[in-house]
């Protein structure tokens, strides 16, 4: 230890003299350079690997089909004679209503599941009740994250089939909303229920680090359990709400399975954007990849925007 420090901090004293020192320095720099070059080369290769599918999709979306697609390299930008915006217009026309539908259930489901997840996490971390009874409640909530949804699909269909939701929502139909929108209400509630576990876990990891003394101080200050949440815990969890909302929004927006089961057809007026996208370009003559790519980018746009603006929060949500 002392030798190493000596070499670094006091080079003039070293036995090799100035010539030896210069040689060594040069060697070090050369070694460093080679290493750094290899490092950055690897990192750039990885970057190319991660970006190629996206880049290739993006340039393809601007090409004519089939001439432009078959006569250019898939990752090359479209030459002027094959350039077109038509695919974007077609995709937008097909997906526009899906975008609105997706937002109609993704936004409320995100907010509700985050809020309920925060409630559950608070009631299970800062509340003082017996661990013997608390642990099973907690375990059941945590395990809910890992359930393959296939295991609940058939009962879910049965349940929503049996619920008189359509009759309950009659006022909406009277107002001219298509009855198919019942599916969106079902989707909202379903996503809230299956989103609570992950939201609870994210909030719980945050609440466990909240100072216990601070909560005790608030209780001594006369605040009830509910008031402590309202005035202390909720305000200080804004950073975590950002993380959870962003993560949960991308999850709900991106999910296909529940949309497929509960709304079922892409021709339904209530079809979410992922459902329409999954069938896009297939029904036309052959596979129209340019249209598919344009559609993919339009469907991904909201989550891409959220990701690019709040990448840090997304990474945090993912890592916890």
């Amino acid at each position: 230890m002392s030798d190493a420090r000596h070499d670094e901090s006091d080079p003039t004293d070293s036995a090799g003299g100035t010539d030896g020192l210069a040689d060594r320095l040069r060697d070090d720099l050369a070694g460093l350079d080679g290493y750094r070059v290899a490092l950055y080369a690897t990192i750039l290769t990885m970057t190319v690997f991660f970006l190629t599918p996206i880049e290739s999709g993006l340039v393809t979306a601007f090409k004519t089909n089939p001439e432009g697609i078959s006569s250019t390299l898939p990752f090359a930008p479209p030459p002027p004679q094959f350039f077109t915006l038509e695919k974007w217009q077609t995709a937008m026309a097909a997906l526009g209503r899906g975008m609105v539908n997706s937002a109609l259930y993704a936004v409320p489901a995100t907010i509700l599941s985050a809020l309920l997840g925060s409630f559950a996490a608070y009631g299970l971390t800062q509340a003082d009740w017996r661990a013997r009874y608390k642990a099973p409640v907690l375990t059941m909530l945590v395990a809910g994250i890992f359930i393959p949804y296939q295991a609940v699909l058939v009962p879910l269909s049965q349940f929503w089939g049996a619920m008189p939701l359509q009759e309950l929502l009659t006022p909406l139909w009277v107002l001219g909303v298509p009855e198919a929108y019942t599916g969106l209400v079902e989707l909202t509630i379903t996503h809230v229920a299956y989103g609570i576990p992950i939201c609870m876990v994210l909030f719980r990891s945050y609440y466990r680090n909240v100072s216990e003394e601070m909560i005790e101080a608030a209780r001594l200050d006369g605040a009830t359990f509910r008031r402590v949440y309202r005035r202390i815990v909720f305000p200080i969890s804004t950073p975590m709400f950002a993380v959870v909302l962003i993560y949960q929004f991308t999850q709900i927006w991106n999910d296909l399975l529940f949309a497929l089961i509960l709304v079922s057809t892409e021709s339904s007026p209530a079809a979410p954007v992922v459902l329409i996208l999954a069938g896009l370009g297939e029904s036309m003559e052959g596979q129209d990849f340019a249209l598919r790519m344009a559609g993919a980018f339009i469907a991904a746009l909201p989550t891409l925007i959220v990701y690019i603006m709040f990448g840090e929060e997304f990474a945090e949500g993912v890592a916890t």
Binding site: E216, A217, R219, L220, D221, G222, P235, I236
Partner: peptide, 20 residues
Amino acid sequence: QKPQDRDIAMVFQSYALYPH
């Protein structure tokens, strides 16, 4: 009695101030 009904005030080692 609940802590809030006891008419006591406590100063904590970490101060436990409300950060927001």
